[in-house]
Amino acid sequence: MTRSPGRIHVLQPGFQSTVQDLGRPGYGHLGISASGAADPLSLRIGNLLVGNPETAAAIEMTLTGGSFEFACDTVVGLAGSDFGVPLWKSFEVKAGQVLACGPARTGARCYLCVRGGIDVPPVLGSRSTQLMAGLGGAALKAGDVLPIGIPEAACQPPHFGPRLLHSTAPGRAIRVTAGPQSERFSGGFYQSAFLVSRHSNRMGLRLEGPCVEHRERGRLLTEGAALGAIQVPPDGQPIILFVEHQTTGGYPKIANVIAADLHLLGQLRPRDEVRFELVTMERARTLLARQEYYVRLSRNGTRKAHLS
């Protein structure tokens, strides 16, 4: 088997940098949630920037960033939050060059995408790292060497208009649909502001704020849990189930973050203020369709850039 000679050496891993792709669906019945990138929209765009399929793996950096040495000439692109390096465009790096990123100026996560993708061995069909279960490796350490995959075809680094950036503006309400037990709660949730707790991780984002009152006590039989579900334990402090969420749970769920806003969760930092806005299923579908339309435009724009 021939392998690309491309390598990335991790000089400083930063806080919880991991290899991520779009996740590992298909194993929910074994207790494995899909996991993958915390901000999949940024990862997809980052991959488009360097001419990769959207599904390629990249380095997800969290809050502090990291520094990485390239063992070959290649093309990289950064997408997500501002980690002090040029965002939303690709650029060439030479063998021996070091790219130092971070800390985050805004938001929480930035994706370092490299042409060809990070080529660690897939586990259950995905190169993503699930930290809690130890699936697909662990958080990066200094001295780790990451192989770069072979690019599918030669391409010119395209320019990308960051139209989607507008949707990641801080302070915007996160849009949700009603959860399966929404009727168990009294009002007030949508008028309240919550702070993201420091005790948040890729499994769950814990919120602190006014107590969300249960109208009905009574236990809930353990049932399936979805990404972005907002569950409320008896203490009234909500938890948003995040990418490495448990597949089943026993707390009632008041709401669920809509698909078009899931990527915003990956950019929340501890102490950020969040509010929620209730939308209908139809509205949620429209918002997702619109988002995908912009991604498709960017993708097509990129293809054109390759041809010219």
Binding site: P25, G26, Y27, G28, H29, S33, A34, L221, T222, E223, G224, A225, A226, T247, T248
Partner: peptide, 11 residues
Amino acid sequence: LNVHPAYASVL
């Protein structure tokens, strides 16, 4: 994409 079974329900 995924099927999450439980005691008396499937997500």
